[in-house]
Design a protein around this nucleic acid. Structure first.
Length: 845
RNA sequence: GCCGGAGUGGCGGAAUUGGUAGACGCAAGGGACUUAAAAUCCCUCGUCCCCAAAGGGCGUGCCGGUUCAAAUCCGGCCUCCGGCACCA
């Protein structure tokens, strides 16, 4: 042990030690309770950022803590390795996406190990490896068999200049990210997963997710978006067709003055003669700018009152929701109101608001019905049901439940993703790739130009194939899968050792490691995945359960969504956003101009308000970096970066180091055994009590939703007491050693390297990772004396020390007898005295 | 617009069930050590009244209420953050 704390030396030593002993390797063990601790795996973008440091520090504390509590902990890590940045790098710099990705993984893996994270790397998965994406394809085929995967036509963002499909994040202000050309919607045949098949169950099961933050459940519920309503048929006058509409406001049915179809509705094409005009409306489809309509020249019959009302095509009506057609009630729907104003359509009030006013906007609230035949004078909520029943009775509709949730479009016109295992044969049509031919491997001979259609379409070798059915000429599907597919089941892949996934042989098998490890007990990650990733994972887990591979439909029992890492932004009037190191004394180091200090916001490369974890680890080490990010705020809240805060954490570890260095020989020679407390000096008793209290506080803070910040504060208090304790006798040294050992054990999940080093330095042979979490003794932790607060009329007037556990009468007597209290209550009548045990007396006069 | 969440010292945050507001850390000020600086150690630190002490007033976004007692419960508002947003 050196005099000076040198984090680099210490951390390297223990990282090596853990790796050599393969100490984080885990196997299923039916005799032990398992604990699955998981953090969201990163996209290998190049380097880790502070968000990763925080995320993985939180997960690692939990994993190490649970391990010390005796759980068989599985704590895996991997790489979400498919995605656009790799392809962008290929377009810009000519590096092959695979090379770029694997190089990044190598570097980032080194960084993660430098943080001292307790991963079982034997379970590592890399989603861009054929061993992994083979199973994406396998799941796809299984879903195709069950009708969960299907093909339909749908719209994508298209840049007419680059001649390429754009992802949503490549569309900036409705323009292409590369050339600014206005993006248009283009219709393509694409593959979908029928997540809507599980909509009802996904929604209902939200209430069972007791270990999830309320906020996330709410977001999921809103996303699924259940709404009850009525589907009703409007017959097209003079034709055989009917228009089926969906409404949640059947009570306004008598107020419908026109009907609107989505431009992509099958009937639109049939009813509209002027195809050019229809095309124009289509171009504005789904855009939020302006309401655009087109009169079809046809009329429809309102099933409630047989009135004939005009049929319009409207750009704001979505084919994806409901039936793709609506009845328009301009008096009671703001969108219809705007449309009616623009096209001069009648507005008919059928719900009377409480106070009448001029109709400058739609009245969307509930009220009493008017002008609605026999339903007039009914309240909205009643009428809604009565009118729906009436329509049902006439056989012109039915009550239905609709969900906002759409089927998941998984086709991407990109290279760096999982090829969709489908073959198109001129004779046999759509033919799935036979299971035994998986994986369909990404070809290498592809040029990355950033223009044109799907990059895979350029590879002749890939595209041209033989139909598995008729052996005739056929073409492969050239789209790849959305990368969210990869991350929807990776947590199941981890359960299989060495990444040797073979779901076929595991199906169905209750003895499989998957049954042992799943579900994830604690999932930790950013709240930005509250909807998509988490919902897709829930969907996939259901599909996999239906395949018999897994028992539970829910993947994650407990979820912790950590807050963002934030820092103030710095901007130079001349040089724009500045990195923290480009600023000295609030001035730009390039031009010396005063720097604008902006508000605290999420660290982002674009605003340069970032701290590079490499610098941090270099200067302070992993233990300090971890400790700071865990101490500065509770995990679920945003964390504001503070350089001084990091210094503080570093100082704390240095103090502990110094304390042990100074006393290590004495500590080494003191073997602690619980003796009679009465033989100890009062100061030693106090320290022993503080130690037990600290064990209790830290343990409770860990159990109580992982409040690491207060747990660390408790450790700081213990260190303060240890530092001011001056051991003299052998007993003192024993108590001191006990305090030090407890401190190191409790600190080890947060700052594992220094804890191991100091643990060893006081003569312990077995590593701290093999120790049990310490237990406290309630009798020793209990205070003998308590501070009693005496209030008069709710205001604190005195504080006295009294022995703990006294009867109320005695406490009351002591409070009233206190001179300062006597003085105040002299000559006054006591109305009442409240006693809060062990805490406070409130005298009301 | 709709749905959530949050507002506590100079700052990050604590206060677990309504019972001492401000734990712990940072910053700041003063002191010790040092030729000096850094590091370290000790003291002060919500605010106002008072020379000071003793003591007292005020204080958890704002206004009101319930209670012996409110950061905590209830009603109304303000600000900030997040999510959704033509979903019929």
């Amino acid at each position: 042990m050196y005099e000076r704390y040198d984090p680099k030396k210490v951390e390297l030593k223990w990282q090596k030690y853990w790796a050599e002993k393969n100490i984080f390797k885990t196997e299923p063990d039916a005799s032990k309770k398992k604990f699955y601790c998981l953090e969201m795996f990163p996209y290998p973008s190049g380097k880790i950022h502070m968000g990763h440091v925080r995320n993985y520090a939180i997960g690692d504390v939990i994993a190490r803590y649970k391990r010390m509590r005796g759980f068989n902990v599985i704590h895996p890590m991997g790489w979400d390795a498919f995605g656009m940045p790799a392809e962008n790098a290929a377009i810009k710099e000519g590096i092959h996406p695979a090379k770029w990705t694997y190089e990044n993984i190598t570097y980032m893996k080194k960084q993660l190990n430098q943080l001292g994270l307790s991963y079982d790397w034997d379970r590592e998965v890399t989603t861009c490896s054929p061993d992994y994406y083979k199973w994406n394809q396998w799941f796809f085929l299984k879903m195709y068999e069950k009708g969960i995967a299907y093909r339909k036509s749908s719209f994508v963002n298209w840049c007419p200049s680059c001649m390429t499909v754009l992802a949503n994040e490549q569309v900036i202000d409705n323009g292409c990210w590369r050339c600014d050309t206005a993006v248009i919607k283009k219709e393509l045949e694409q593959w979908f997963f029928r997540i809507t098949h599980y909509a009802k169950d996904l929604l209902k099961a939200c209430d069972e997710l007791k270990g999830w933050p309320e906020k996330v459940i709410l977001m999921q519920k809103n996303w699924i978006g259940k709404s009850e309503g009525l589907e009703a048929d409007f017959k097209v006058a003079g034709r055989d067709e009917r228009i089926r509409i969906f409404t949640t406001r059947a009570d306004t049915l008598f107020g419908a003055t026109f009907v609107c179809l989505a431009p992509t509705h099958p009937l639109s094409e049939k009813l509209v003669v002027d195809k050019e005009a229809l095309k124009k409306v289509k171009e504005h489809y789904g855009k939020e700018d302006e309401k655009i309509g087109l009169f079809t020249g046809h009329y429809a019959t309102n099933p409630a009152n047989d009135e004939k009302i005009p049929i319009y095509i409207a750009n704001f009506v979505l084919m994806e929701y409901g039936t793709g057609a609506i009845m328009s009630v301009p008096a009671h729907d703001q969108r219809d109101f705007e449309f009616a104003k623009k096209y001069n359509l009648p507005i008919r009030v059928v719900i009377e608001p409480e106070q009448k006013s001029k109709l400058t906007e739609a009245y969307e609230d509930e009220g009493i019905l008017v002008d609605s035949n026999s339903f007039s004078k009914l309240r909205s909520d009643v009428a809604r049901i009565e009118i729906a029943k009436h329509i049902e009775k006439k056989g012109l509709g039915k009550r239905v439940i609709n969900y906002k949730l759409r089927d998941w479009g998984i086709s991407r016109q990109r290279y760096w993703g999982t090829p969709i295992p489908i073959i198109y044969c001129e004779k046999c049509g759509v033919v799935p790739v036979p299971e035994q031919e998986l994986p369909v491997i990404l070809p290498e001979d592809v040029k990355f130009t950033g223009t044109g259609g799907s990059p895979l379409a350029e590879s002749e070798k890939f595209v041209n194939t033989i139909c598995p059915k008729c052996k005739g000429k056929a073409r492969r599907e050239t789209d790849t899968m959305d990368t969210f597919v990869d991350s929807s089941w990776y947590f199941i892949a981890y359960c299989v050792d060495n990444g040797k996934i073979n779901f076929q042989s595991l199906t169905p098998n209750p003895q499989s490691p998957i049954s042992y490890w799943m579900p994830v007990d604690q999932y930790v990650g950013g709240v930005e995945h509250a909807v998509l990733h988490l919902l897709y994972s829930r969907f996939f887990t259901r599909v996999i359960k239906d395949l018999g591979i897994i028992n539970s439909p829910e993947p994650f029992t407990n979820l912790l969504t950590q807050g963002m890492v934030c820092k103030e932004t710095l901007k130079c009037p001349e040089h724009g956003w500045l990195l923290p190191e480009d600023v000295k004394d609030e001035k730009c180091i390039k031009c010396g101009k005063a720097v604008d200090i902006g508000r605290v916001e999420k660290m982002s490369k674009s605003k340069k308000n970032v701290i590079d974890p490499d610098h941090l680890i270099n200067r302070y080490g992993a233990d300090t970096s971890r400790l700071f990010s865990l101490f500065a705020a509770p995990p679920e809240r945003d964390l504001e970066w503070s350089d001084q805060g990091v210094e503080g954490a570093y100082r704390f570890l240095n103090r502990i180091w110094g304390l042990l260095y100074k006393n290590k020989f004495k500590i080494q020679n003191s073997k602690f055994k619980i003796e009679e407390l009465s033989s100890y000096q009062p100061s030693a008793v106090r320290l022993l009590r503080k130690t037990h209290q600290t064990i209790k506080r830290v343990t409770n803070d860990m159990e109580r939703e992982y409040h690491f910040n207060t747990a660390i504060a408790a450790l700081m208090e213990l260190v303060n007491d240890l530092c001011s304790f001056e051991p003299k006798s052998d007993d003192d040294w024993k108590v001191f050693r006990f305090g030090i050992e407890a401190l190191l054990l409790l600190l080890s999940p947060f700052s594992p390297h220094i804890s191991e080093e100091l643990w060893e330095s006081i003569g312990n042979k077995k590593g701290i990772l093999e120790q049990k979490w310490p237990l406290w003794d309630e009798n020793i932790a209990k205070e003998e004396e308590i501070e009693l607060v005496i209030q008069i009329n709710g205001k604190v007037k005195a504080k006295i020390m009294i022995a703990a556990g006294q009867a109320d009468d005695e406490v009351r007597g002591k409070a009233l007898g206190e001179p300062r209290i006597q003085e105040i209550i002299k000559g006054k009548t006591l109305k009442k005295v409240f006693i809060v045990k062990g805490k406070l007396v409130n005298i009301v006069i």
